[in-house]
């Protein structure tokens, strides 16, 4: 597939303006993938993006609560949105799953009756959600608001030695209606654009928008591992040095469970999986250690050697 350059527009007049967001980190960036949170903060700091965490934010429900009680799940999201509105800041998240669930909840709340019902449950806490929030993943913000040209000027160590495959997962690409993809078609190529901007060679593959298998890990582990094995081995065989993902849940499965998936597939895989901010950080000259690469289950050693060895 050919990746078309996307015109990000002239933002030169905004160059020095600091940008500030209501930060929604999501549970996993501080739990199962604790290396993501500091890496995202470091990279944002370098870009002059100020992050003010939404006080007392809650889980989005991850789509799981929504299967059992959609109203409860959506009310939790409205609560987070209302808190951000009180801060007067747009929401930035670093989790694709959170992005998808927030967008879907927001989409349902376009129904004024439903929004009123949800607000009735928030009133006790003195909160009210207007329905106008537009939560965005850091990946989208970089392309739509910050500007790839501006990010490009901060790259001090282009990753020219690396071949990188994108892995979106599900929630940041589907369903397209809730994610406003029609208005923002560039969102479907955002990771590819980022990989190329950072100087790496893009390893494109069909599985990039498929499921990582995480949601059924405890339900049908065999299928979950088959998905991990399929995607990681396919990319490995295409010669990629690593895969990059904007989703910490995909990371948990693709990295944490890769050894198990490899043994089920009866082959070795050893494909490092990077969080999106880690890849950006490497291109900004930050060290693998400070970006938390040592916390990964699949060793990032060979990739670090490639970056260092020039």
């Amino acid at each position: 597939m050919i990746i078309r350059p996307y015109t990000v527009g002239d933002r030169s007049h905004e160059e020095d303006k600091p940008v500030k967001y209501a930060f929604f980190p999501g549970c996993v960036s501080q739990g199962g993938a604790p290396e993501l949170y500091p890496a995202a903060r470091m990279v944002c700091d370098r870009m002059g993006i100020e992050l003010e965490e939404i006080p007392g934010w809650t889980c989005t429900g991850a789509g799981v609560i929504q299967e059992k009680n959609q109203l409860f799940g959506d009310t939790l999201n409205a609560r987070n949105f209302a808190k951000a509105e009180k801060m007067g800041l747009p929401i930035l998240t670093i989790c694709s799953t959170c992005q998808g669930v927030m967008s879907q909840a927001n989409h349902r709340m376009r129904d004024p009756e439903y929004l009123a019902e949800i607000n009735s449950h928030l009133a006790e806490e003195g909160l009210e959600y207007s329905g106008n929030s537009e939560p965005k993943h850091l990946l989208w913000i970089l392309i739509e608001d910050y500007g790839l040209d501006r990010l490009g000027s901060l790259i001090t160590r282009p990753l020219t030695e690396l071949k990188i495959a994108p892995f979106y997962g599900c929630y940041i690409v589907r369903p397209t209606e809730a994610l406003d993809i029609e208005e923002h078609p560039e969102r479907q190529q955002s990771l590819e654009m980022l990989i190329q901007l950072l100087g790496a060679t893009l390893v494109d593959f069909e599985g990039k928008t498929r499921c990582c298998g995480f949601p059924i890990l405890t339900i049908n582990q065999r299928n979950s591992m088959a998905m991990v094995g399929k995607h990681t081995s396919e990319v490995k065989d295409l010669g990629a040095d690593a895969m990059v993902t904007p989703c910490p849940l995909c990371h948990l499965n693709l990295d944490g469970f890769q050894p198990k998936a490899a043994s089920q597939a009866r082959r070795s895989i050893d494909l490092p999986i990077l969080h999106m901010p880690q890849l950006i950080g490497l291109a900004m000259g930050m060290s693998p250690n400070e970006l938390g690469l040592k916390k990964h289950i699949v060793s990032t050693g060979p990739l670090e050697v490639k970056i260092r060895g020039r």
Partner: peptide, 16 residues
């Protein structure tokens, strides 16, 4: 039972 409703990954491909 296995192979039924709980085996779905909620990936939204079918909705799309």
């Amino acid at each position: 039972e296995p192979t039924g409703i709980w085996d779905c990954t909620r990936c939204n491909e079918c909705v799309q």
